[in-house]
Design a protein around this nucleic acid. Structure first.
Lengths: 236, 236
DNA sequence: GCCTCTAGTTTGTATGACAATATTAGATGT
DNA sequence: ACATCTAATATTGTCATACAAACTAGAGGC
């Protein structure tokens, strides 16, 4: 996930942003699993930055709902329940069908080409079965759709939702059959976009998200049934 | 807006939260108008807290999109364009029709009573033409709907949108005829909720938000046409 | 009037300090 | 050995400073 570095508008690399990015990655990748406690001092050492910066980064992640405060004021990686995931995907369906409609209507040629390129990378990565890589590329796909939709508000609202399911997607794509299904869905979406057919693109996105939702919710419900751990520790 | 204080789960009032709340109010009320630059040192003095706390508060407001970073890292009160407002209301329509459906299905008796009470206050305040007061109560109405919908995710996504239009609502309700229209719409919503008719409630919410959207967008477009100020200063 | 250089602002970041809680480890009693 | 209470240790929230880098504005020179 290096889109941050592609931005045109510069912001000579703030330490804070770097920290946020690192932490987001650590959470997405599962290095800090859901429920893990994040201790400021440890993060300082791990990231090599001051407490000031770590704390500001945590505040940011907090309002993105990637971490949550425990009752003792501890900061823990957010636990996403099956219910949460279901709602997130419901909302994503609302937002991203709208987004892809606008993408079809408003994107310029470069943006469409870039999206097609990401799609191509997606297809290639699919054959390698590298879930983490795949999830990262998928994120980029959705993000490009959001950007091409040219609505600041849609982007701001939908983007944090993407970050929250990043970690889940990695595991849900491991569901048998989900990969091939996902591939077909992405193909359909891409084709509709290139044909300039907003209705069909939106419908393809909706189908895709509904299927993804089903896979993720199923996985989470299964997990919740088996293990209800009282406490969780951070990865060493 | 004192819901914060009603929470059961205590959090012995953090200085940071206090600062956030104060700043949010200052922005909603227009004390710091859109575009105004927020200087850390001044906020420290105004709020009587350290820079550490101010900065953490600003980070939070930043991810709520109530403030935005200017080109050279200055923090400014977010400017909401007509386009932004239109999108915000579109998204609110998606989210809050869903929310009111769930409210009808899931709220308990106390929550319905509380909503009715807010509605009553709304009606009373309407006759007094106190826009700021009215806007605050309206916010509480929407917020209660979101809470009663019992979806953490819907709440987390929709709530920040409410904060963003708080300031606008004050002025849009001054549009001639908007008040009476709003009253009828709220009545319809409330009636449907009490009748337990989710479809009708959702439709009433949709109509209400579409009308509110039209009023606010019209107002913003008019403003944008007349005044394109190059720079804006904070309220003295 | 216009340009340049200097001095003051403002932000980003780091450090150190300290109170108030939490948590853990130990000491103690049975 | 076990439960319990207590003292040592950790952790978070907050403040005060410090300083470099980027920026702004004003003084002064042309």
């Amino acid at each position: 996930m290096e889109y941050e570095d592609l931005r045109i508008i510069d912001t000579p690399s703030l330490v804070r942003d770097h920290a946020i990015s690192k932490l987001r990655n650590a959470i997405s990748s599962g290095l800090y699993p859901p429920g893990a406690r994040l201790v400021e001092r440890e993060l300082c050492e791990a990231l090599g930055v001051s407490r000031t910066s770590v704390r500001e980064a945590l505040r940011q992640l907090q309002s993105e709902n990637l971490v949550e405060v425990g009752r003792r004021r501890s900061i823990n990686v957010a636990v996403i329940t099956a219910q949460d995931a279901a709602d997130i995907y419901m909302i994503r369906e609302m937002l991203e069908t709208q987004a892809i409609r606008r993408f079809v209507a408003l994107s310029d040629d470069a943006e469409r080409k870039a999206l097609a390129a990401v799609h191509k990378r997606l297809v290639k990565a699919l054959s390698k079965n590298d879930m983490a890589q795949l999830s990262a590329i998928a994120s980029e796909f959705y993000e490009r759709v959001l950007i091409g939709a040219k609505s600041r508000v849609i982007y701001e609202v939908a983007r944090p939702l993407l970050a929250r399911v990043n970690y889940l997607r990695i595991r849900s794509m491991a569901e048998p059959g989900r990969l091939d299904g996902g591939l077909k869905e992405w193909d359909a979406m891409m084709e509709a976009v290139q044909a300039g057919d907003a209705d069909r693109a939106a419908e393809a996105m909706a189908v895709h998200l509904r299927n993804a939702r089903a896979a993720i919710v199923a996985r989470l419900e299964a997990d919740e049934k088996t293990a209800i751990p009282a406490k969780r520790k951070a990865a060493s």
